[in-house]
Design a binder for these strands. Structure first.
Lengths: 210, 210, 210, 210
DNA sequence: AATGAATGAGCGTTCATTCAT
DNA sequence: AATGAATGAACGCTCATTCAT
């Protein structure tokens, strides 16, 4: 036993390399089409190394999804600045909407989205990871907090800020995904702005005071 | 004369049986996992019969999707009665929303939805069929027409009825799909009503006059 | 029984059409690669018609070869004029050699040659048809007769005319086939003349008197 | 140390075993009829091992032909002694002719010959390997050298030794192949001697001095 | 721990042949 | 006699996984 505990340097690096390669191949080809051969080759390691690290194809897949979900969306550190607070609710929400939409429609994110939806029925563990998505919740909370503040100041009348926040995000992403044909095509900047504007308009008008 | 009309070229009965079997297997297993063997066995025909009718696996898949999309959603004949017109916009839209949601969340429909999203990148022709989905458009039109009528009568102020209709449908289906974990689990009736209520509320409030 | 004996008109025409189509497909693709489907389609008939006329693929193949061997080579009617008799043995043999070479290297003839060689071990009946090739024998006889006449007149000294004739033909065709890479490429006219000249020269010099 | 040198990349032993098995099966059945399954079974390896070593059926086939062509015919080391030089041209050429004929008519050689002719049109790369056949050229050169020497000494008058050498070989092999029905049947020893004698006689007589 | 050669099962597809019409 | 739909067996090839090194 030359090394006391977990393999320190080389092994961790390969672990990451395999994860990166698997992410690339799974997102590109889908679970069933992706071959372990291709993943090992992309990672530059032998096939047995993949099996040594992850056991089998399915566990590798779940590891990929778990890691990818964490890495996508809005950077947690930027959450504080997601919704600016200029006092102009319309401008603030539109700005946040555009930023959200860009993150949602990022190609890797859409690919991950399609992949997990596709495999949801075949890999039950995916349903758990889908449910407790802390990042999505944090984003929703940030917007709800903003709306609650607007309500407190009387700029808007928002009786249920979490609900309104979720509706805002839902509508935004649904429109974005459908307009980009479920993420297959990228959206032009002005289209992103237009969707954010329309969604913001609906939410703001729905919650205008009195 | 066991069959009313004579089979035109190839046996129409087998054609349908293969389509049915393929729909079942594709929806259950996904494109890559589905085997032509399994489809032929499910249909109760030989494999070559499948190839005789549809040429290859991909064309069979596209035929399945084309047919399923047509057969899915709201029956075109019911479109006229999709949105009741009692004069109470909230009640009318909620009723329509519930009916829509039930159709959207029907298991076969969700499975088809997941399948086509999953395969969108691998079968470019799917993108076309996704784009010109006449049925979705007709539903959206029906709701837009209803909203335009409310606007004409002054019950609501809807400057852009098609936009509002699309937002209504988007929000409704996005909420429904997410809450049912992208369609893996069915939703209880009261949950469906709640989503329809919340969505209707948002739309109605956003377009209340003056 | 509307027709007394063998099916007279329509059937014979289809018989020929199938033979023609099969010849084309077998010569192009080889026996194993040729599909009965392709032959039936080329002939413009149903597959069962092919089986009705010829029983199975092998018998169809043998029928094709039998007919094709008869139809190729030098036209039997031209045999009399194959070797001109101007008194100049060199010129006469060269002329005959060129004509023979053109016939031997005709694409259909080479294709048939390759096909039968390829299938000789798999279809024992072919060996019989290869052995009793009356046409080849007749050609050889014509040349042998010419050489015997030259010997009688003292222009050449040909102790064994049939042997010399066979050697002439063998050398001619072997050179032609090898130079055209076993018939895959066509030979230019001047190359044909050159081969005929060289071969004629060898034979004439070998049999010059005293 | 059971094997002298360590296997370099993939197991060299299996590589050879596959080549041997493929040679056997291709020569016996022809390209189209030979199945990779049969080859793998004959070699005693799994099918994937075959694909790992040779990529696909065609490349395996070309490898077989390349190796077989090299291993076939007269051993290059014996080329120096192919044509004895006793001073008696007739005896020398007859001896060389018999040895050549035996090599040409060796069953594996004939099978390879038939196989490559049969597949010449379907595998264009075969044409290249057919063209630059160094061994055939070396044999032809050896005979040409002998004839040149006879010409120098005045025993024979050979104005174009390479041409005469090629004619000798062509006639020899063509006669041999045709008499053995394109190699399907083996030839008796006295028949081989007779063909060599006739061919030698023709060449020698054609080039007798003055 | 890591390699890649090797495996057995399975894939999509095509074939020669036969049935029902 | 003739069609073309249908069959079962086989094909070339790829896969996830496991040895032997």
């Amino acid at each position: 036993m030359p090394q006391p505990t977990a393999p320190p340097g080389r092994s961790a690096a390969k672990h990451e390399a395999i994860l990166r390669a698997a992410t690339e191949v799974f997102l590109r080809d889908g679970y069933a089409r992706a071959s372990v051969d291709a993943i090992a080759a992309t990672a530059g390691v032998g096939k047995q190394t993949v099996y040594g690290h992850f056991g089998d194809k399915e566990r590798l897949f779940l590891a990929v999804v778990a890691k990818a979900r964490k890495a996508t969306g809005v950077d947690p550190e930027d959450l504080g600045t997601l919704v600016p607070d200029t006092g102009d609710a319309r401008a603030d929400l539109q700005s946040a909407g555009e930023r959200l939409l860009r993150a949602i429609l990022a190609p890797e994110n859409m690919a991950l989205h399609r992949l997990t939806i596709a495999e949801l029925t075949h890999h039950p563990e995916l349903q758990r990871s889908w449910r407790d998505d802390g990042n999505s919740q944090a984003i929703s909370d940030a917007i709800a907090t903003y709306l609650a503040e607007r309500d407190r100041r009387g700029d808007l009348a928002v009786p249920d800020p979490p609900l309104a926040a979720r509706q805002f995000i839902m509508l935004l992403s649904a429109e974005g995904q459908v307009r980009s044909l479920r993420g297959v095509q990228t959206l032009a900047e002005d289209e992103i702005r237009e969707i954010a504007r329309q969604t913001t308009d609906l939410i703001v008008r729905a919650h205008r005071p009195s």
